[in-house]
C-alpha cells in the first residue's frame, strides 16, 4: 500500500542535507509552510539556497532560517519588505547572496524545471539590469531574454487537504507557488490541514496530482491566523 503520509514533521524533513536547495511556497503568510520551516530549523541543515517569492519577514519562517544563519543564498522577486530586517542585515553584511528574479520569470523558470524544458525565452526584464549579460533573441518582432530553469532538491508547500497518494487541494490565495514548486523539486513535502481518504477529493477539483508529491504531513490549521 502506498502511503505518503509522514507521521511527524521531523520525519517529513529527515533527509534534508547541508547545501540543499529548497523551494518554499507562500506569498506573504498565505501559503507559507511555517511548521515545515520550523522543522527545517530543528533539523539543523545549513548552507541552504532558498527559492521563494520573498526573503522572509518578522521572526518566523524564512526570516527565522536566515536569523539562524542557515541560508547561503536567496532566489526571490521581492526581498525588501517592512519587516525583512533579518534578510536586510545579512545581505548588507555580505552573508547572504541574492539572485533577484522578476516574479513571473521566477514562476516560469520553476515551471520550466517541472516541465522538463531546457530554457525559456521571456519578454520580462528585456533591456533592464536584471537581463544584463543574458542571451537575447528577437522572435516575431518582440525581444526575449533566455532564462534557465530553477530546480530544487526539496519543495516545502502548504495545502488545505491531501490524501495518501499525495493529491492536493489548496485554499484561496494560499495556492500561489505550491502547484508549480511541487513539480520542480526532486522531493516535494506538503503540509496539509486535513488528510482525507482516497476518493474523498473530487478528481475534477484536484489541483496537484499525487505524482508531484512525495510526502504529506498533517498540521493543525491554526497558522491561517499567523498574519501578524
Amino acid at each position: 500500500m502506498i502511503d505518503k503520509i509522514s507521521p511527524s514533521l521531523r520525519q517529513a524533513v529527515a533527509d534534508l542535507h547541508d547545501g540543499a536547495s529548497i523551494m518554499i511556497s507562500g506569498f506573504g503568510d498565505a501559503g507559507a509552510p511555517h511548521e515545515l520551516m520550523d522543522a527545517v530549523i530543528e533539523h539543523g541543515a545549513t548552507d541552504l539556497t532558498i527559492i521563494s517569492n520573498n526573503a522572509g519577514a518578522g521572526e518566523t519562517g524564512i526570516a527565522a532560517l536566515i536569523k539562524a544563519n542557515r541560508v547561503r543564498k536567496v532566489i526571490c522577486s521581492f526581498p525588501r519588505q517592512a519587516a525583512s530586517h533579518h534578510f536586510d542585515a545579512r545581505y548588507r553584511a555580505g552573508q547572504v547572496e541574492l539572485e533577484l528574479v522578476p516574479q513571473g520569470n521566477l514562476a516560469a523558470r520553476i515551471q520550466a524545471a517541472g516541465s522538463g524544458l531546457g530554457a525559456i525565452y521571456t519578454p520580462t526584464g528585456y533591456g533592464t539590469l536584471l537581463a544584463e549579460g543574458k542571451e537575447t533573441r528577437e522572435i516575431d518582432g518582440r525581444n526575449y531574454v533566455l532564462e534557465y530553469p530553477i530546480h530544487a532538491d526539496f519543495a516545502l508547500i502548504k495545502a488545505r487537504a491531501g490524501d495518501r497518494w499525495g493529491n492536493l487541494v489548496y485554499r484561496k490565495v494560499a495556492r500561489n507557488f505550491g502547484p508549480i514548486m511541487a513539480m520542480a523539486a526532486k522531493t516535494t513535502i506538503a503540509q496539509v490541514a486535513e488528510v482525507v481518504e482516497l476518493g474523498a477529493l473530487d478528481p475534477e477539483a484536484v489541483v496537484t496530482p499525487g505524482i508531484f508529491v512525495n510526502r504529506l504531513v498533517q498540521v493543525a490549521p491554526l497558522s491561517v491566523a499567523a498574519a501578524a
Binding site: 522577486s77 521581492f78 526581498p79 525588501r80 519588505q81 525583512s84 534578510f87 536586510d88 545581505y91 548588507r92 541574492l98 533577484l100 528574479v101 522578476p102 516574479q103 513571473g104 520569470n105 519578454p123 520580462t124 526584464g125 528585456y126 533592464t128 539590469l129 536584471l130
Partner: peptide, 21 residues
C-alpha cells in the same frame, strides 16, 4: 522598481511582467 542607490536592497515583484505584458 529600483532607485539604483548603492545601499538600496532591490525588489522587483511583478512590475516587469506587468510592464511588458
Amino acid at each position: 522598481w529600483h532607485t539604483g542607490a548603492a545601499d538600496a536592497i532591490p525588489a522587483v515583484g511583478g512590475a516587469m511582467d506587468l510592464a511588458v505584458g
